[in-house]
Amino acid sequence: MKLTNEELIEMYRLLLLTRKNDERINEIYARKGLPELPHSCMGEEAIAVGCTYKLRQDDYIIPSLRARGMFLVKGIPTKVMMAGAYGKRTGPARSLSTSHHMGDVSKGVMIGTGLIGSSLAVATGAALGLKDMGKDTVFVISFGDGASSQGDFYESLNLAVIWKLPVIFVCENNGYAISTTTARQMGVENVADKATGLGVPAVIVDGNDVMAVFEATQEAVARARKGEGPTLVECKTNRWRGHSENDRDAYRNSAEVEAMQRDCCVTRFEKHLLEKGILTPTLAAEIMQSVAQEIDEAVKFAEESPFPAPEEALRHVYAD
């Protein structure tokens, strides 16, 4: 898919928004300003933006624990996500769940779960439902390298390939599952190798190149819409911070982390657009200002919103 200049600038803005939103949430959490434990996506923004950009409104996503940018790209307002991190009534589903797993049917966002790998089966089943309904809607689900060790990974990919289901499995391989490196996690070099072993077509891309992620995903989406079944898109990237903001990341040395941060996916894309003249320094500064303002407003909205009443915890255990 060829993107217009406006669309490329929009992608850049979404990268920046994801980055700055993450920075701000980490900063607020550090001073104990909100209850939800952040799992920083810094360094990995290109995957979230690249695999979600230009999906249709009725296409579905389930973001991984870390791919917060997917919510923003799919249209969840920054302020709603922020209110969710604050546990406020104006958060998604009045903050009954942490914002990591929020859903919104109108925007094609399906609720996830805290159990790693579990959503792979749910996404596969949703794709089955979409196919049986005769739609050409697709399901994009992202997950980390650790999730590829879970039983549901194998069961889901297997079912998706034998039944030719329209699900795109996006693996954010940042080399770590909390403190466990991929070398200690799995017997093959790439998560893509596991997919290939099950018969699922797989590609490996530079996860820090938003256009590479975008193009690989779009190709997989096109295959899925035509009824050709699933694809696994493995995106190699780096996690800049600890697993969560409670993780002191002591198992990595600072030199390693500093090296990672020199390959910033946001800076890379900015540089690329500047070189092409699609972005100018003035426009870049305007976008930065607009993103900062959006986040400021989101924080204000979250701080001024009320908490849900305690008794609201008893609602909707059952559907009517």
Partner: peptide, 19 residues
């Protein structure tokens, strides 16, 4: 296939999407 977890997990997903 012989895979109980995805039988039910997929059923959940299909149910959530309207089946």
């Amino acid at each position: 296939p012989l895979a109980e977890s995805v039988i039910v997990g997929a059923a959940v997903g299909a149910a959530m999407i309207g089946m």
